[in-house]
Design a protein around this nucleic acid. Sequence first.
DNA 1: GCGTGTGAACACATTCACAGCA
DNA 2: TGCTGTGAATGTGTTCACACGC
Lengths: 223, 223
Amino acid sequence: MSIEDSISEDTSGREPLVPKAVVSRLSLYLRELQHLHRSEQKTISSSKLGRALGFTAAQVRKDFAYFGQFGYPGIGYRCEELIDQIKKILGTDKKWPVVLVGCGNMGQALLGYRGFAKQGFDVVAVVDVDENVLEKTFQGLKVEHIERLPEIVKRHELKVAILAVPATAAAEAAERIVKSGISGILNFAPVTLTVPKNVSLVEVDLAMELEQLAFSVFQNQQP
Amino acid sequence: MSIEDSISEDTSGREPLVPKAVVSRLSLYLRELQHLHRSEQKTISSSKLGRALGFTAAQVRKDFAYFGQFGYPGIGYRCEELIDQIKKILGTDKKWPVVLVGCGNMGQALLGYRGFAKQGFDVVAVVDVDENVLEKTFQGLKVEHIERLPEIVKRHELKVAILAVPATAAAEAAERIVKSGISGILNFAPVTLTVPKNVSLVEVDLAMELEQLAFSVFQNQQP
DNA sequence: GCGTGTGAACACATTCACAGCA
DNA sequence: TGCTGTGAATGTGTTCACACGC
């Protein structure tokens, strides 16, 4: 999860700022709604949507209420309409070109992952420093040297980078990314990065997720 | 993050139950402490540890206080000692053998990821249903048919499975996993799984993480 | 002085419960 | 009747501020 606040700088402290927890549920709602939409389901009530995801009906309604009035009393929410609304809120109604930094084991897997494109994220360039992968082509993209990053960012008007290098190389890579003019980093390296506060950061640490699971299993065992 | 509570069933409602947010920070503390330990740093104060991770000193102290008194007034916390304590709390002071379910693109990457082993998680078996990978060997492990799961679980006394199959196959795979006696699933498929409440679930949806990042960038842009 | 542990105060998030609309 | 939108009440998590130990 993001270390930074998900919300814009609180310069004046007046706006009714959306809680970060709400934003993360928005993605879950979107995923479920897209699933319903594919199943030809036209509308859904807050209680059913909540049940599917493990939330209360009140929470579902309140979450949406932060952004406007999308529901129809007596009916519920129209799936397709709500999908569009959430996408607009998240900013994923438009395509996001992204650059992949690091083309090792994890990087190559992310390149092959079809799930990004489905939500509007297109990997349009790949950079690395390792001789072994430089100039090679993966999924139709030739790996360029990380020095090229500034021009790549400009050329594609990139805002977001996916960082998938070894832990030891992460800090330096992050600095290069920031200097290239990127404003958001999805970090897979198990290191706490320091970035300027105008740059957003989301961290995914797979070992940490397993630790959380281990703890949970551990608890449920001796009740 | 887990859909289930990270905490044991609230059967009687008396224990001072640890907030799930605390547990997720525990993993972050651990990562940072291990980093400090490798840098020969013997002790650390709550304020410095907090600053490194973006938390307040009070929060750091309160988090640890849920589990006991680990600090030394005037000194701080001894890194090595605290590492051991946190590992004991998370349950990662012992090795956790895990089974990987799904050996496609993502599964193979996870198999090659060295970060799991570093925290005590060993992938000891791999299962799938796809003819193309069955019987093949990856990272020294031969892919077995998912039907074998029950005996594999028993043989290695497995508690945890990593689920990395395509979305369409996830629900069925999860059911097989549950039936095989596993009590925790780390799910990489972008689907909401339904599991018995004695089974823990942690979800990692990479597209969702990118959505969160997109939103954050989107906000920071028009201030 | 420095730094922990902790009750009390505060801020934030969730749930309740009901008015109002289709 | 069914379901949304929302103020009020509750519950949970975070920060403050200070007593105490090194």
